[in-house]
Amino acid sequence: MVYDLPFLAESDRQNAGHPEMGGVCSILLPLICYCINTEIRIPFYVLNAFMAYSFFKFGFYMKGRLTSGAILSVYKRCAYMLLSFLLLVALVAYNTCGSLNAIEYGKNALVCYLQGCIGCLFVVSLCMSIFQLLGHKASFTLGNGTIVLLLLQPPFLLTLKLIYRALFHPAHSAPYFDIFSAMISAVVIITIMYPIILIINKKDPVLNGIK
């Protein structure tokens, strides 16, 4: 099982040395980012990193809790996934979407961080459900295909945006997405890309950094 791999256990031990420091940073760094005038652009995306730190820390925490729960059935994991998805949709409808790139929080910064935490729960639950349903081979194939996904997803994403806008939001002058279409497009793109990743892994694995 993926959560029993030695390197994951070692990573957990290395990051568990000073949990109180991580907790302090999870509050302090985003607070610094929120208080600083975001019109002042600090080099190397330092403020963006400060804003994102809490999401990273919570994601790591949830990974340790959810991936170690081997006794959870796939039905319970899917229930977690569905519940977190519905909560995320409701919060986005209220607060709109924040942006790490632009350092925007929507209507409320606290709700924005709640959205991020629930999003982490959704992603981890989704990945573990895929792992339990399809096995480690499919999970590792998608993991190894990250480079291909990053390279080829823009044209697929733009095409889906244009189709969605033409069908549902023709009044918008630019490609338009809402949270439903964004998540559906993610599933569609991954489904399309999976056989492409398999072919690349077989024919020229160096493109995925395997060899």
Rank of each mutant, 00 (worst) to 15 (best):
V2R: 00
Q14N: 08
A16L: 02
G17I: 04
P19D: 05
G23T: 00
C25K: 01
L28C: 08
L28R: 07
L29I: 03
L31T: 07
L31N: 01
E39N: 15
F44W: 00
L47A: 09
N48G: 01
N48I: 01
M51I: 11
S54R: 06
F55Q: 08
F60K: 12
F60Y: 14
T67R: 10
A70L: 10
I71S: 15
K76E: 15
K76T: 12
C78I: 12
A79P: 02
Y80Q: 08
M81R: 01
S84P: 03
V89Q: 01
L91Q: 00
V92F: 05
V92S: 05
C97L: 14
G98W: 13
G106M: 07
N108M: 00
C112G: 14
C120P: 09
F122H: 11
C127S: 02
S129L: 07
F131H: 09
A138P: 04
A138M: 06
T146S: 11
V148Y: 03
L149W: 12
P155T: 07
I163K: 13
Y164Q: 10
R165V: 12
A166P: 02
F168A: 08
P170C: 04
S173V: 12
A174V: 12
A174I: 10
A182M: 10
M183H: 05
S185T: 11
V187M: 14
I190L: 14
Y194R: 06
I196M: 15
I200F: 02
K202G: 10
D204Y: 10
L207S: 01
